Amino acid sequence: MFFHPENRGRSARHLKLYAYFELAYTLTDFCAAALFVVGSLLFFSEETTYAATWLFVVGSVLFGVRPSLKLVREVAYLRMGDYQDLARKLD
């Protein structure tokens, strides 16, 4: 099944791919949260409202990147020949 937690331990390649995507996921989360915090602080001053709005927009895009990373990881598993979970889901 897609997004099954046991996928990460199927092989050394799976483990390495999982680790890279987890790092990217965590960095994306951290950056999105940081942009929202800084954007919130910038809203305290009227002169920086425009910049704050852009930080919120970029942070929102990063929150959209999160599920995309998981989907790309699962597609990479399929490209590695991991069809078992997908085949079970289709049955």
Rank of each mutant, 00 (worst) to 15 (best):
M1H: 12
F2P: 11
F2C: 14
F3C: 10
F3L: 15
P5M: 04
P5L: 06
E6P: 05
G9W: 01
G9C: 05
S11E: 02
S11W: 01
S11P: 03
A12R: 13
H14P: 02
L15H: 10
Y18S: 13
A19C: 07
F21S: 06
E22M: 12
L23Q: 02
A24W: 02
A24Y: 03
T26C: 05
T26G: 03
L27H: 00
T28K: 01
T28Q: 00
T28N: 05
D29E: 03
D29C: 11
F30D: 08
F30T: 09
A32N: 00
A33Q: 04
A33I: 04
F36N: 04
V37A: 13
V37R: 07
V38I: 15
G39L: 01
S40W: 11
S40Y: 08
L41H: 13
L41A: 14
L41C: 15
L42N: 09
L42A: 09
L42W: 08
F43I: 09
F43R: 10
F44M: 12
F44S: 14
S45V: 12
T49V: 07
T49E: 08
Y50P: 00
A51H: 02
A52L: 07
A52V: 05
W54Y: 14
L55H: 00
F56E: 01
F56H: 05
V57Y: 11
V57M: 08
V57A: 11
V57N: 06
V58E: 01
V58C: 07
V58T: 08
G59M: 00
G59H: 02
S60D: 01
S60R: 03
S60H: 06
V61T: 05
L62C: 05
F63P: 00
F63C: 02
F63D: 04
R66D: 03
R66N: 02
S68Q: 14
L71W: 12
L71H: 13
L71P: 01
V72L: 10
R73S: 06
E74D: 14
E74L: 13
E74C: 07
A76L: 07
A76Q: 03
A76F: 05
R79A: 11
M80G: 09
M80T: 10
G81I: 10
D82Q: 09
D82L: 12
D82N: 10
Q84E: 15
D85S: 15
R88G: 03
K89P: 07
L90A: 05
D91I: 00
D91L: 07
